[in-house]
Nucleic acid binder design. Structure first.
Ligand code: MN
Ligand code: MN
Ligand code: ZN
Ligand code: ZN
Lengths: 139, 139
DNA sequence: CCCTTATTGATAAGTTTTTTCAATAATGAG
DNA sequence: CTCATTATTGAAAAAACTTATCAATAAGGG
């Protein structure tokens, strides 16, 4: 995502310094970041950025599809910048670095089976993979 | 899970009144419950049960595989009782009722693809489906 | 530029989760 | 069955996290 500023404007929002910081910090990180982590990373770099703004910005970005929230074991969740559309993430359980991949519809078969068995109608899903990134495999 | 008491003992933990309450309340609920919700449900029934104990009990149960934490949009997460082993959940987005299903390895193909594309090695995953339960479909 | 108004952030309020520690109750030994 | 040991509980307090307020600031259109 690089023309996120365009998208923001288009949607009627202003492109501000704090919002630029949040996006920059997210893009520079290889791992998901929590609001607190973003705030501290920003503060460490003299960014003009308040914690409250981080929360608001993440909520806005999420709404616009610019970031996704991922669930972690300890911290509960963090945010990752993302391309628009249906995405999934694969997160390294050692160093936290994440990669996204498009939501290919490989779940069709599984979903059909489950629908038949349960009577539920499936409308969406949450899928995250975890494992080891190339760098962390030699350990 | 009905011989969870056995499992607790076996693992060296005591079978206590508060722990019985937590498990009972979870088993009686069709939807995931948060610690706060469990506490209130217990209190409403004169259970001897403190909020702190609910947190500790859920952590223990999770460790023993007696419950799983599921992620929701608003509350972040709640707990569901579960059979041991690899499970997934399908949650109604209208009423919250959930059903579990065994983790059939339908992801094999997807995982192989992703591993080849990213160089990561996949060790596990988080999969949740959401949709509408039979009762909520006519609305 | 200047005006309008969305946005920010310090502070405070509200939630959620964890820590402490004395009192309690579960379990095994006798 | 009774007692002693010790894991467990829960009230209270601390810590961490999230949301609400509102005066000051700065984006962006005119
Ligand atoms: Mn979560
Ligand atoms: Mn699975
Ligand atoms: Zn790694
Ligand atoms: Zn339903």
């Amino acid at each position: 995502m690089q023309d996120w500023e365009e998208l923001l404007s288009q949607a009627g929002y202003r492109v501000t310094e704090p919002r630029r910081w949040v996006m920059r910090l997210l893009l520079e990180s290889t791992a998901p970041l929590s609001p607190q982590a973003l705030f501290e990373a920003g503060r460490a770099r003299q960014a003009r950025l308040g914690l409250v703004t981080v929360y608001r910005t993440l909520a806005l970005f999420e709404e616009l599809g610019l970031v996704h929230r991922v669930h972690l074991q300890e911290d509960c969740h963090g945010y990752l910048p993302t391309s628009p559309g249906h995405r999934h993430f694969l997160i390294c359980q050692h160093c936290g670095s994440a990669v996204e991949f498009p939501g290919s519809e490989d779940l069709e078969g599984l979903i059909a089976t489950i629908e038949a068995q349960t009577g539920y109608r499936v409308a969406g899903h949450l899928l995250q993979l975890l494992g080891l990134c190339p760098a962390c495999q030699g350990m």
